[in-house]
Simulated scan of single mutants.
Amino acid sequence: MPKVLVLYYSSYGHIGTMAEAIAEGARDAGAEVAIRHVPETVSPEVAAKAHFQTPVHPEIESVESLADYDAVVVGTGTRFGRMSSQMAAFFDRAGGLWASGKMNGKVGAAFTSTGSQHGGQETTLFSIITNLLHFGLTIVGLDYGFQGQMNGEEVVGGAPYGATTVAGSSGQRQPGEIDLAGARYLGARVARTAAKLFG
């Protein structure tokens, strides 16, 4: 049974909801799954003023604990077309883990949320994937076996590079069923790939 970590940062809950769906897909595919969030880097005063939501999942124990998993799926909202500073700060502390080579050959994937349809989803996914590649992970994307991402009739997330959702300019839009289905599909793909590599 592969061990999958869903690691995320979420200010307003959208990414936390997507993390749950990814975990569900991975569990349904036979994986043991943990969901963790990275530490907040802004002060409690700033977080309160911006109405940040308190994450419902435990905080990750340490950077080094990533090596305990066969696969890591990383999610964060976009900040001007790249990953959030909170997620970047977490990876910036991982030099020792990188140097150890303990992540080489593990499975990685990415997910994100933006305020608009063209708010930098793909570049944010690539900013996550770039980090994962430097750690030696084998990347799994959201292939076109998930046809929901081809829907042109409504606003939906999804890209070949990972699962996504559109939150709206003020966070008013929650992940829809197609977005969540894409997240579950990605979680299942990660779990199946990890099982083939480590089973």
Rank of each mutant, 00 (worst) to 15 (best):
K3G: 01
V4Q: 06
V6I: 15
L7M: 07
S11G: 14
G13M: 07
I15E: 03
I15D: 04
I15A: 05
G16C: 03
T17M: 07
M18L: 15
E20H: 06
E20K: 15
E20N: 10
A21T: 07
A21Q: 02
E24C: 13
G25L: 03
A26P: 00
G30P: 12
E32Y: 05
V33N: 06
A34Q: 14
H37K: 08
P39L: 00
P39C: 02
E40M: 11
S43D: 12
A47W: 09
A50Y: 14
H51K: 14
F52C: 09
Q53R: 14
Q53A: 15
Q53Y: 07
P55T: 01
P55S: 04
P55K: 03
P58W: 11
I60K: 13
I60P: 08
V63D: 08
V63I: 14
E64F: 09
S65Q: 13
A67F: 01
D68S: 15
D70K: 14
D70Y: 05
V74L: 14
G75F: 07
G75L: 10
G77N: 04
G81R: 11
G81P: 06
M87E: 06
F90Q: 01
D92E: 15
D92F: 11
D92L: 10
G96C: 08
L97A: 14
W98P: 11
W98I: 12
S100Y: 03
G101A: 14
K102V: 10
K106E: 00
A109L: 10
A110I: 06
T112S: 11
S113W: 05
G115S: 10
S116L: 12
Q121N: 10
T123Y: 00
T124V: 12
L125W: 05
T130M: 05
T130Y: 12
N131D: 09
L132Y: 01
H134P: 09
G136I: 15
G136H: 12
L137D: 05
V140L: 10
G141K: 00
D143V: 00
Y144R: 08
G145M: 02
F146K: 00
F146M: 06
F146C: 07
Q149E: 07
A159V: 07
P160H: 07
P160W: 03
Y161R: 06
A163W: 09
Q172A: 13
R173D: 06
R173P: 05
Q174D: 03
I178H: 08
I178G: 04
I178V: 08
D179G: 11
A181I: 00
G182Q: 03
A183S: 10
R184L: 09
R184T: 02
A188E: 03
V190L: 09
V190T: 05
V190Q: 11
V190H: 11
A191M: 04
R192F: 08
F198N: 12
F198V: 13
